[in-house]
Nucleic acid binder design. Structure first.
Lengths: 342, 342
DNA sequence: ACACGAAGCCAAAGCGCTTTGAACGCCGGT
DNA sequence: ACCGGCGTTCAAAGCGCTTTGGCTTCGTGT
């Protein structure tokens, strides 16, 4: 059933039917009712391909997926997707994933724009002065960043959590507990979130006249293995940290393993706070010693991003609002005062 | 730059230019060269929306993403995506994710078909007699299943790993080591993969006149917490298992935690084999006791699925070929003979 | 010399929608 | 009695591609 058939059936022009269905004002309310009613009864649904061609709007949002044999998609992504899906579902909003070589994302963004494949995109894992943000800004494709990209002189819409504040507060807490040698096991410090977290830690330390010694700030891909390696190295060095802040639960697994292997205990020998993105399959309270965390649901962020994206597509939101969410600091058994003799 | 402009520029008809570009035979090779050359020089790219409308083909593949507040997307999904992306990238093939309420996926599939949104879909986490498979078969939308759905009297294309064989072999190995009380910590047994794994275990046991006692086969969502709970329950019961087979590394984390908490050791008190889908962020060799595994890269499967899907879209593959991959059995330190006195 | 098929090209008709520009009837105001 | 304007509807022109059917032109066999 297409528009033509429907309009013939109603003895109206395609124009009128189209307008009735799309809520244009210049159609008689009585007529609109008839049209809407008939459309529903016959299960008429406008052909999206035709509509796309006519309007240029696709009703889809896009995401350029960095791939490559050396690239591992962040496991957080799936949790984010859950959130996005939760919200998008109700609006029949689809998400288009365009895989791209990690080095050549720009080409893909250009293609997306040239092809008018989506109405907006979202960008994740941004870095300072992220080229994608700059590109999208000039290309004029609406976008929303999950995270932040510092260093631009224009505003753009984003949703971020207060990484700096979270790690600042967590560090301050450790300091209040008497810790002085506090280490940071961070993610890739080319990304903004990691930079902000490091900044938070340093600021808290500096506020107390402290600074992390050499080798006590590490930046690696957030795997269990890296958590282990880094922790092992730190803990075996002279002046080992008495507390560690860690950017992910998965790395924390590795840290715990290192601690155990060295015959140390948490929190007896080492206090540990990790960032928790809230996964259902790995919970900080279930660590052998329940883990203190900075917590922020990445899934909720996904839902909010979908919400804002949809608002933007329907013209309800505009401008370049940045939104920063506070982060919970959840204290569990993994932190304590400084071990005696340290 | 659109087709019209390009054809005027070349002083040819749109027909000829279109045909030249799409490789139709009835165009002079000399002419084709000119056209292709000009198209490249001017960066002409056919408008996909227009092409869609004309042909009905979209050049995209779809996936219906089950969502809902109670639904957690499988973390394996992201690894699968990596593989899919690796391959799809080179072909500029995009993936459309359509979020759907877990209970109402059917509606979404119908919408996708009615709207001609994608040329094919892939289906994951199939169950026996999966309604999606039946639906897609009748709707006539090309599809490819990752996994298998038993119980249909027609063939359909799928890619699966030999779950039954893997768990059979792993169990047999444990039996050969002298184990008699072997338990299975499985995933959701409404899904085919879990059913096959259980079947593999039972078959190996039966082959030796054994059978799992009550309570030694569990089926839960594959989280760390469930691994812990189940293992704890099993190990504290009378006639505790001396060996456990486990369907995921994440659950294995929980099992290890339970073992440790009970003051037991691996492999001294308990042998453990888990299935490894090959994640970069959690590796079996890095468990405190290196884990023996049945191993199959889910990422490779993603790539292969993309490959087959693409072959199918370009008409190279047809029919309903099922493909089953063998699974590696990798022995590491987590298994040993039966503890004395058991 | 003519017919016939193949090779190569083209004009135009879709695909199914939105949107422009115009038409129609009817009202109130002058 | 006439005109401007409003409310409502419509025919037709896109959007940019593919594909049908037809039209030349040229070489070949009779």
């Amino acid at each position: 059933m297409n528009l033509k058939q429907l309009s013939q059936m109603l003895e109206l022009s395609q124009t009128t039917v189209s307008r009735a269905l799309n809520g244009y004002p210049e159609v008689n309310e009585e007529t609109r009712r008839r049209v809407v009613d008939a459309a529903k009864r016959h299960g008429y649904r406008p052909n999206p391909s035709a509509r796309r061609l006519a309007t240029g709007k696709t009703g889809m949002i896009g995401y350029v997926l960095p791939t490559g044999s050396a690239v591992d998609i962040d496991p957080h992504f799936v949790e984010f997707l859950s959130g996005l899906g939760d919200y998008a579902r109700a609006h029949e909003l689809d998400l288009v994933l365009s895989p791209a070589d990690a080095e050549e994302q720009e080409t893909t963004y250009r293609r997306i724009v040239a092809n008018k494949q989506v109405d907006a995109v979202y960008v994740s894992s941004p870095r300072p002065q992220d080229s994608r943000v700059a590109l999208l800004d000039t290309l004029g494709l609406p976008f929303l960043v999950h995270g932040r990209s510092d260093g631009f002189d224009f505003d753009y819409p984003y949703l971020d959590i207060d990484n700096e504040g979270a790690f600042h507060d967590a560090t301050r807490l450790l300091i209040q507990l008497g810790h002085q040698r506090i280490a940071l096991v961070n993610g890739d410090d080319r990304e903004t979130f990691a930079i902000h977290r490091e900044r938070g830690v340093r600021r808290a330390l500096a506020g107390n006249g402290l600074a992390p010694p050499d080798g006590h700030v590490s930046s690696t891909v957030m795997t269990e293995e890296n958590g282990y390696r880094v922790a092992r190295r730190m803990l075996e060095s002279g002046g080992a940290p008495t507390a560690i802040l860690c950017s992910s639960l998965i790395m924390a697994l590795g840290i715990v393993r290192a601690v155990r292997e060295l015959g140390l205990t948490i929190p007896g020998d080492l206090s540990l706070i990790a960032h928790d993105d809230v996964f259902s399959w790995l919970k900080p309270e279930n660590f052998s010693v329940p883990l203190s965390t900075t917590r922020s649901s990445i899934r909720a962020a996904g839902a909010r991003i979908a919400e804002r994206l949809i608002a933007r597509l329907s013209g309800l939101e505009d401008g370049a609002r940045g939104e920063v969410w506070p982060v919970d600091l959840v204290v569990r058994g993994s932190i304590a005062g400084v071990p005696a003799g340290s």
